[in-house]
Design a protein around this nucleic acid. Structure first.
Length: 283
DNA sequence: AAGTAGACCAACCGCCGGGGC
DNA sequence: AGCCCCGGCGGTTGGTCTACT
């Protein structure tokens, strides 16, 4: 039995905020500040939980917020920062005056992810799909390539299927290998044997797809969120959050302790050129 | 005109870390 | 040291709007 959420403890209202509630909250905070969110709804005469008030204030009512469309510059900034810090929306939002983490997250999920996909770039790894395709076809036998293609349905199916139908797997082009299909060459160019529990899952992480262990029957497009790898890795943001691959390259994207980044994408993808100054402010 | 699907976004949920006791 | 509360965060949900059939 878990602890009740703050909104369950009291008889509080939920759902959309009314203009009167907004007025009450805004005027209370203007007078008394925003310390102690637990007391604010009580003192302001609101039947809301403190958490809901805080969210309403930080995401909508704060006077310094921008509410309009994201500019091209803002979008570029989000993409660049996401390529470095991953889904750390608050860190990204701090670099954008007047934008909240919720704004950034929503904009990423609804617009930018699709934009990158249309450009042929995997929004999870920020690598071109062609790069991923090369990794797939030089690493896996045809059966697994087909499975990957199937698992990719629902994620980036158009891009991947196009690529996967252009070239077939050629076992003779495999590099020398230690494991059943040779070492898994990850995003960092680091060779990993498949039996170290990273191989196919690592690739799945690169593709943003989820995989099951076992007989292969668990392949399912529904497992794929498009932005996170929900199977086989850490279930959250596998490659990013865990820093699965050591050595300090793309795979450190999103690591909270990452101290690198400015040149991370520049050489491999010819992609982003993040200034160290900007990096230092967010990492 | 009605129904449906997809896009968008505000709000909620659950987890985590920090601080106070 | 352990517990509790609070605030912050990222992921997810659900309502509304719009475009399409």
């Amino acid at each position: 039995m878990g602890r009740m959420s703050c909104c369950e403890k009291e008889n509080v209202k939920r759902g959309q905020w009314t203009p009167e509630e907004d007025n009450k909250l805004s005027s209370y905070i203007a007078q008394h500040g925003s310390r102690n969110w637990r007391l604010i709804p009580k003192n302001a005469g609101l039947q809301r939980c403190g958490k809901s008030c805080r969210l309403r204030w930080t995401n909508y009512l704060r006077p310094d917020l921008k509410h309009g469309e994201f500019s091209e510059v803002e979008e570029q900034t989000i993409i660049k920062l996401h390529s470095i810090v991953g889904n750390r929306w608050s860190a990204i939002a701090h670099q954008l005056a007047g934008r909240t983490d919720n704004d950034v997250k929503n904009h990423w999920n609804t617009k930018l992810k699709k934009k990158l996909t249309r450009m042929g770039i995997d929004p999870v790894t920020h690598k071109p799909f062609s790069h991923l395709y090369a990794e797939i076809t030089t690493t896996f036998p045809p059966v697994q390539v087909a499975q990957l293609a199937e698992a990719t349905l629902g994620c980036f199916k158009d891009e991947m299927l196009h690529l996967l139908t252009k070239k077939r797997f050629d076992p003779h082009q495999l590099p020398p290998h230690d494991g059943p299909y040779g070492p898994f060459v990850d995003a960092m160019g680091t060779a990993r044997p498949l039996d170290d529990n990273v191989g196919i899952h690592g690739l799945a992480g690169l593709c943003g797809i989820g995989l099951n262990d076992g007989d292969g029957s668990g392949w399912s497009p529904s497992m794929c969120t498009g932005s996170t790898c929900t199977g086989g890795m850490d279930g959250r943001d596998g490659l990013h959050e865990k820093g699965e691959v050591d050595g300090g390259g793309e795979a450190v994207v999103g690591r909270k302790d990452s101290g690198k980044g400015s040149s991370v994408f520049g050489s491999e993808c010819g992609f982003w050129d993040m200034s160290d100054e900007l990096m230092n402010t967010i990492v």
